[in-house]
């Protein structure tokens, strides 16, 4: 199958193209806005939040997603002054990185709420996004659920051997162990998947199929 396969054009939905392009445009705009243009960034954030509201994303869901994303993004934003020194503009730089990250994240969140993932991949293929990128996303999506199931199994096993109410410190230590186990299991799984791919002729070149 080549990138220009006819199925893409035939099954592309105009609405899906508009959604994908809108989301990418918001990300690009967010990344190009400087600190001085903070009102524009605020307006972009407001537009994205409004789009999420229109998509029916509940506030509780949004807060949960942001609760997972913000700590990571804050660490990334802080890593800049930590590595380059706390100059007079460190706060502006970190805030800009944080704001750009949040707007981009919200834009992506909106996209996956309004466009089913299969449709998203199909639209990307139709818009000539490199097949490698689309195939990587497809595989990531496939194994994200497998990884999540693995986490759930580990958590269940941990709960099954937890008697009484443990302290918060114990909980944190157990979580660290769980993450470590998950990394090792994921590496093992990665090896097994690679072997299974080799067994079916994988030669390092992606050949997407409709």
């Amino acid at each position: 199958m080549t990138d220009s396969a006819p199925f893409c054009a035939a099954r592309l939905e105009p609405g899906a193209i508009v959604k994908l392009i809108s989301s990418v445009t918001i990300v690009l705009l967010a990344c190009s806005i400087s600190w001085e243009a903070w009102p524009a960034a605020g307006a972009l954030l407001a537009v994205t939040l409004a789009a999420l509201a229109c998509a029916g994303v509940r506030l509780a869901v949004l807060c949960r997603r942001l609760g997972l994303f913000l700590p990571i993004m804050s660490l990334i934003a802080l890593s800049i002054p930590l590595s380059q020194g706390f100059t007079s503009t460190w706060l502006q730089i970190s805030a800009t990185v944080l704001l750009r990250g949040v707007i981009s994240f919200l834009s992506g969140l909106w996209l996956i709420h309004v466009l089913p993932f299969d449709n998203l991949l199909l639209t990307m293929r139709g818009l000539r996004v490199p097949a490698v990128v689309v195939a990587c996303l497809a595989m990531m999506h496939r194994y994200l659920f497998v990884l999540w199931e693995e986490i759930e199994r580990l958590r269940t096993a941990r709960r099954a051997r937890r008697f009484g109410r443990p302290s918060r410190i114990f909980d944190w230590l157990a979580a660290v162990g769980l993450i470590g186990t998950l990394v090792i299991r994921s590496l093992d799984r990665g090896h097994r998947i690679h072997r299974a791919m080799l067994a079916r002729g994988w030669d390092g070149h992606l050949r997407p199929w409709p």
Binding site: M1, A138, R142, R192, I193, A199, G201, R207, W209, P210
Partner: peptide, 28 residues
């Protein structure tokens, strides 16, 4: 030689069954 591995989850990399089955023939 076609190998069927122990854990089927490791061997199903396609999003749909049809796409997954096509993986081998595509690489032929």
């Amino acid at each position: 030689v076609g190998v069927l591995f122990q854990n089927p989850t490791d061997q199903l990399f396609g999003a749909t069954v049809g796409r997954d089955v096509a993986f081998g023939p595509l690489h032929l």
